[in-house]
Structures are given as C-alpha cells and as structure tokens.
C-alpha cells in the first residue's frame, strides 16, 4: 500500500528515469516492503541497481552505505523501520549522499514507511525525505482533532502515529469483543472480518475478510525543511485514497495461501 501510494509522488518529484539502490531489513516485513516498492518504481520506468539485505540487529550501516557511492544509483531506498531506519538514514546523510550528484541528477533518499517518532530520532537528517504514514496528528478530520486535543492536553505534545494506532486498536478490540459477546480470540476475529468503520482519524477503514488486511487512505509525507517546532518535523504531501492502494486478495505479490483454521489457544 505504501508503494502504491508513493509511486505517483515519486514520479512527480523525481521523474521516470532513476536508478534505485535498496537497503532492506532482512526479515519478512523488509522483504515484502522492498518487493512492492521495487515493483511500483519499476512500473514508473525506474531501474533497480541492487537490493542488499541488512541484518535486523545492525546498528552501524556505514559498510552497507559505502557501496552505494560507486553503484551508479541516484536514489537510495531504505526499507528499514524503527531503529534501523533512524541509524541507516543518519549514516546515509553522514556519507554526504544528499549532497551528491549522479547521472546529472540530485541524489535522493526514500524511506517508504516512517513515523513522526522515527523522524524525531533521525533529527535534521529527515529533512526532505519522502515516505508514507498511516496517520498524522495534523490531519483535519474530527476524529483526529478530538484525539489530538485530548492527548495533547494531558501530555503536552501531539500524539504520535504509534499512540493513535494503540488507541484505535484498543477501541477496535473493545468494540469487537462487545459485538462478539465473547473474549474468545476466534469470535473476536470473526467480528473484525469484513468490518468497516470510520471516525478514528484514518478515514473509512476496512479489515478485509479474505486476507485480514487493513485498507485505508495512506498519507504521503516529507520531512519538513524548516520545521516551525519539534512537532512539525513531517509535512503531509498527499492523502492517497484507499481505492488507489487496494489490491485484489489473490494479487500474486501478497497472496499467502489459506488463512487456515482459527486456533483460540485454549
């Protein structure tokens, strides 16, 4: 979904003739993230120069960044999340990639998925970095406004994407238990299958029954060049409608076989 949302923006910002070098966290999320962003960018006409898997526990990415310098790539895609992303982006900027010119173009760094907390960890290195988010406190819908007001009044700072996700998930779970009339995990799962809701800040959100994937609008964001304060590190570039990022349950890239029998664990 991140890739489908990002691709049109990447095309608009960086054009169709680009060569991308991917650094990918070596676990399931990293592999699928990389596969989808590679497919989306190649559909634009971009070339993929290399995809290098990095250990999940890696903290210093310098030895993975160094080969990028002489690879001929003019875009570095960091398929990293959390601490991996904070460190790899910091290291990439230290190596002067953002000031580099390759193939007559400015070198660019793309992080397909990141959050305000990660942006905070990366500090000034996040400036100008394009990526996507699930939610942002600067959204203008009523659900977001109410949550930001309530959270901000209590804690003195706006909620992060993680805070919103935790709150939304707790509300969803409570609602599903109530509708199912049971705490049995299988009953709760059944109550969530095909469930569509709105009002929690993400727009209309669907938990598709076929594959249990969550579909909603995706935010394309960019690190602010001159943030007015520590809470405005990220600016929203575009809200990509859910229709644009929805894929068929049998899409070859994501089809993972049958869901199987529910095991309540007891």
């Amino acid at each position: 979904m991140s890739a489908a949302a990002l691709a049109p923006v990447l095309q608009k910002l960086y054009g169709n003739e680009r060569s991308a070098y991917h650094l990918t966290a070596d676990y399931t999320w990293g592999w699928t993230q990389q596969e989808s962003i590679q497919a989306a960018t190649e559909a634009l006409g971009w070339k993929t120069v290399n995809n290098v898997l990095t250990p999940l526990a890696q903290t210093d990415f310098s030895s993975y960044i160094a080969p990028v310098l002489n690879s001929g790539a003019d875009v570095l895609v960091l398929n990293h999340y959390g601490g991996n992303m904070v460190n790899s982006l910091t290291n990439a900027v230290q190596f002067g990639l953002r000031e580099k010119q390759v193939n007559g173009k400015n070198f660019e760094i793309v992080v397909p998925l990141y959050s305000e907390l990660m942006a905070k960890g990366a500090g000034a290195n996040i400036k100008g970095i394009v990526g996507s988010q699930n939610w942002d406190w600067k959204l203008e819908d009523e659900g977001t406004k109410a949550f930001v007001k309530s959270f901000g009044t209590k804690y003195g700072f706006p909620p992060s994407q993680a805070a919103q996700t935790c709150y939304a998930q707790a509300m969803l779970y409570a609602d599903a238990v109530e509708r199912a009339g049971s705490f049995n995990p299988c009953a709760v799962a059944e109550a969530l299958e095909g469930f569509e809701f709105d009002g929690l800040g993400n727009g209309k959100t669907l938990y598709r029954a076929d594959d249990h994937q969550c579909f909603k609008d995706v935010l394309v964001v960019r690190g602010a060049e001159n943030p007015q304060d520590e809470f405005h590190l990220v600016e929203i570039v575009e809200v990509t409608p859910v229709g644009q990022v929805t894929y068929a349950p049998d899409h070859p890239m994501f089809a993972g076989g049958e869901l199987g029998q529910c095991n309540p664990g007891a």
Binding site: T90, F95, G96, K120, G121, A122
Partner: peptide
C-alpha cells in the same frame, strides 16, 4: 526509549 539525535558540531558535519 527513542533515540535522541545528538549531532556533531557543524564544522564536522558532511564528508
């Protein structure tokens, strides 16, 4: 729990 960015002096940033 989050990393705290602590940059080098401006004179030593870059490569």
């Amino acid at each position: 729990a989050n990393p705290v960015p602590t940059p080098a002096p401006t004179a030593f940033q870059g490569s």
